[in-house]
């Protein structure tokens, strides 16, 4: 089985997924590396406050905070 054995209707659907390639430089700058490492879809802080704070989450919060604060030391 190969590409040519795929039904025509399915091929049309697959063709709908087009990808635009951005301009990508070969070399990575240090600032870009840091920015990419830090990148993550940011959550709305209001949503964070409004989520239910279970006892487990409250107990885990200082541990998570400590872990976050120590990340720069761990990665040095």
């Amino acid at each position: 089985m190969n590409k040519h054995d795929i039904p025509e209707e399915l091929k049309q659907k697959l063709d709908e997924f087009e990808v635009d390639v951005p301009d990508i430089p070969l070399k990575k700058s240090l600032s870009q590396r840091i920015a990419n490492w830090l990148y993550a879809p940011a959550k709305n802080p209001v949503d964070l406050i409004s989520t239910q704070w279970t006892p487990f989450r409250i107990a885990m919060f200082p541990i998570a905070l400590l872990f976050l604060c120590s990340l720069p030391l761990l990665l040095l």
Binding site: D5, P7, E8, E9, L10, K13
Partner: peptide, 11 residues
Amino acid sequence: LKDLLEVDDDE
């Protein structure tokens, strides 16, 4: 994929 996209099997 055929199942999820409801594509007929015309192989």
